[in-house]
Structures are given as structure tokens and as C-alpha cells.
């Protein structure tokens, strides 16, 4: 059997490596200075989908919702081996919380056509919510298996998956189609292939072509898009007009959760006892803790 997969991917700020430049003196975030990376567990999800394709055949489509800059992420997916990629991008989708995000993604998935599996990373490192996967599954009326660690078997349209639970693991079996969220341990993402890397360097999404047109009065968007499509260098782009969505369920408007306020982390200075990093200083500390029966 062949297995067609859609993989939900996200470009995220690299929160693990926040440098001084990113935080402004007033404690706000300078997003422009944040490096953007492939959300690690989404990359693992893509790898798992590619492994299934290597084994059973079929097609892997990477799907992301994000600003035009997210085209970089899709080029990376192509270089790893994705057959197709799709960018969902529109100002009306901006400011979405997980509910509005999953709504738009579910409509985009429906638009992409029949599939056997939807993959997603367990969670994204910028929010750590782990909500978009299950919410997308609910909207598509699909069963879900979260925290997937290993696909044990795929046969006759039935998948068997080992998933992590807090006190061990369980093995679940379900008919396709299905949505899986994948943990970091599930696979080691393959490096990009040099040949593909070269080929997808010149692939462009709609907003990127629009920017080229804006900068060059000799270009027309329709002909440019046609040209890129014919050369197989166009990243399919879905905007609000391409999807059957209710505007009030998209973006900030469609997000029930709102950020009331954001506090920068202000440290109080705290009164603590300085202990010299010497044999004597530390010895005295040990003695104090022993006397207070904290240990000993």
C-alpha cells in the first residue's frame, strides 16, 4: 500500500538561544533579532513521514501557516525530501492562537485532498502548548495518537503505534486516516540532500513573487506565477480567498485567548548570603546546614 502524508510544520523563534540583542532594555522582545528555526519535533515528524514513504511509497506534503518568511522552512522540507509543500499565509490569519490556527490548518488540509496520515510535532518550542495537533484532529473528525514514539506496523489501512505515556508506554491500533503527534525520540531527521538543496534554492512562494513584482515594474504577478509553476518552482500558497473559512474564526479575531498583559521579568535583587567558593567558606556552609538538620 502507498501512504500519503501531510506534515504540519512550523517556523519558530529559537527560544533556546536568546541573546542579549533580542531582549530590549525595557524587557520587551525584539523579534527581528530572533533567529527562526525549524521546530525540532516537526522536523522529526517530517522524517517519520519520509521513512513511511521510503518503505510504502506515496507522497509527503509539508504544510505550514505563517508569514512569507516561512517559505524558508518549506524549502528546507523540500531539501529533506518532501514531494510537495504548501504555505498558508494571509494577514487575516495573523495573531492566531491554537484554536484559530487549527481551524485554518484543518481547512487547508481538507483543500489539499485525500490523505492517509497527518503528522505534527508534539509541540512547538515557542509556546510548548501541544494543542494544535489534537485540535486539528478534532476539527477534521480524525482519531489522534499523541506522543507517538514509533510506528510499529502499517498494513491494510491499519496503523499500529507505540506512544509514550507518563508512566510507561502503550501500543494503539487504528484505521487510517489518523493524526499523529510525534516526540523528539521518534526519529533522527535526515540531513538535506545536496542535489535537492540546489534545486529548491530557487523555489518561491506567492508572497515572495509578489515582492519581486513590487520591486520591478517590468514583472507581472500572473505571468511570473505561471512561469514558476511551469518550471516546478512555485510553492503553492493558500490565502483566505482560497480556503472555505469564516473570517471571524481566523487570526486574532478567531482566537478566544488574548494576551492581557506581558510583564518583563524583573528581578528583585533578593537578599542572600554570599558564600566564598573556598574550602573554609563551603565547610562553614555545610556545618550550618548540618546544624539546622537540613542534611547530615
Amino acid at each position: 500500500m502507498s501512504c500519503n502524508s501531510i506534515v504540519l510544520v512550523k517556523q519558530v523563534p529559537d527560544t533556546a538561544n536568546i541573546s542579549g540583542q533580542v531582549m530590549r532594555p525595557d524587557g520587551t522582545i525584539n523579534r527581528a533579532k530572533l533567529p527562526a528555526v525549524f521546530n525540532p519535533e516537526d522536523k522529526v515528524a517530517l522524517e517519520l513521514a519520509l521513512q513511511l514513504k521510503d518503505r510504502y511509497g506515496g507522497k509527503v506534503t509539508a504544510l505550514t501557516m505563517g508569514p512569507p518568511k516561512a517559505s524558508d522552512l518549506l524549502r528546507e522540507c523540500l531539501s529533506m525530501g518532501a514531494d510537495e509543500v504548501c504555505l498558508v499565509s494571509d494577514r487575516k490569519f495573523a495573531g492566531a492562537d491554537t484554536l484559530a490556527t487549527s481551524y485554518v490548518l484543518s481547512r487547508a488540509i481538507a483543500k489539499l485532498g485525500p490523505f492517509d496520515l497527518v503528522f505534527a510535532g508534539r509541540q512547538a518550542i515557542d509556546g510548548d502548548t501541544a494543542q494544535v495537533g489534537p485540535q486539528t484532529a478534532e476539527k477534521l473528525d480524525l482519531p489522534q495518537i499523541t506522543y507517538a514514539e514509533q510506528i510499529l506496523e502499517l498494513r491494510d489501512g491499519v496503523i499500529t503505534v507505540k506512544r509514550r505515556i507518563d508512566d510507561g508506554y502503550e501500543v494503539l491500533r487504528a484505521p487510517l486516516p489518523l493524526l499523529l503527534t510525534v516526540i523528539a525520540d521518534a526519529a533522527l531527521p535526515r540531513p538535506p540532500r545536496a542535489k535537492r538543496l540546489m534545486a529548491c534554492k530557487h523555489v518561491r512562494s506567492l508572497p515572495e513573487l509578489e515582492r519581486m513584482v513590487d520591486a520591478n515594474s517590468l514583472l507581472y504577478i500572473d505571468t511570473l506565477v505561471d512561469e514558476y509553476v511551469q518550471q516546478g518552482r512555485f510553492i503553492r500558497t493558500l490565502t483566505v480567498d482560497d480556503l472555505e473559512v469564516e473570517a471571524e474564526r481566523c487570526g486574532l479575531a478567531g482566537s478566544p485567548t488574548k494576551v492581557k498583559k506581558v510583564d518583563s521579568v524583573v528581578l528583585t535583587g533578593g537578599n542572600h548570603q554570599r558564600v566564598p567558593a573556598t574550602r573554609e567558606g563551603l565547610g562553614q556552609l555545610v556545618e550550618e546546614l548540618m546544624n539546622d538538620r537540613v542534611f547530615g
Partner: peptide, 23 residues
């Protein structure tokens, strides 16, 4: 916010169109 809660709550929030804040 356990393996159960994090599997269940988002699905329920999606169904009821409620806001959900994690952790």
C-alpha cells in the same frame, strides 16, 4: 497538564470553541 490532560483538553477546547491556556 499530564499525558492525559494534554491529549484531552485541546480536543475538548476545539469542540466547544473555548480558549485553552497550557501550563
Amino acid at each position: 497538564a499530564t499525558f492525559i490532560g494534554r491529549d484531552l483538553a485541546p480536543r475538548v477546547a476545539s469542540f466547544t470553541r473555548s480558549g485553552l491556556t497550557a501550563d
